[in-house]
Amino acid sequence: MRAKISRRTLLKGLVAAMASTISMAPSRKSSAHDFQGYETNRGVLVDVSRCVGCRSCEVACSREHGLAPPPGLVDNYRLLDQQQQGMRRTDQNAFTVVNRHESPLLTHPLFKKTQCNHCLEPACLTACFVNAYTKTPEGAVIYDADVCVGCRTCMVACPFSIPAFKYDSAFAPQIMKCNFCFDTRLSRGRPPACVEACPMEALTFGYRNDLLRVARKRIRDTPGRYEKAVYGEFEAGGTSWLYISPVPFEQAGFDIHVPRQPILNYVKDFLAVVPMVLTIWPGLFAGIYLLARANKTHKNTNDHEDVSDETSER
């Protein structure tokens, strides 16, 4: 016969099973499910209608962060022309890029600057299993390369596809992304390098709440000049960088598929399942076990068949 399992051993096993799983299962209730962003959250308002595509911001950024100088600066417009095949994106050598977009509503091209939008509830941060990302009260989403494992889930999670990975480094690879010039500027209340470099005042630095008012005022004061929406007010739960555009956002190179709620909301359904499984499964399966065992013992005593030969092998 199979070793008799007394109530005590059964309980012991159960406690062991539950302890081992519960101790592994982190508490996953988010306390911040109504997070509206920090009052002190700074941001930048990008007026797409003002940008002329000079890419001074790219140069300033690469200098600020010691990155390789942006390609094709001499023949600036040729590079922007080439982009017709595919847009440039942020990568390990560029924290910000400017792309050219044509809109059927305009006779001239539009230029859109791309960089980390510094979400109020960043997807990269919520997806990171080693807590490498921090949302500072100033609004920057900064990254700590010292704890990063290189799993690249943040790149999957970012709805704007901003974080890039230094694939060519074997010993010190890391995520490369705009940090709002946090260390050098933002933490001292100064605007990031790109904003300072812009000759067209296409970029306005300030408190996010103020910028939203500025954006709405511009839209209201010059009727017909802007789309009546601020990109970033609600996208991915709200971003620090905000945009106003003279044409529908998809024509200016914005991803309009970005959900309007924080990415974390999509994961909460699963996170709610975790405690349920942890509490219901042990009892359920222990119960099934007891039923199955009772059934088997009953059968064995009834038909006197030697099933025990098989079982004793275990």
Partner: peptide, 18 residues
Amino acid sequence: RLTYPMVVSFGPAAVLFL
């Protein structure tokens, strides 16, 4: 750094942590 999520730095609200 495979063991970092267990030993060094915790991001318990992330699915990958689980």
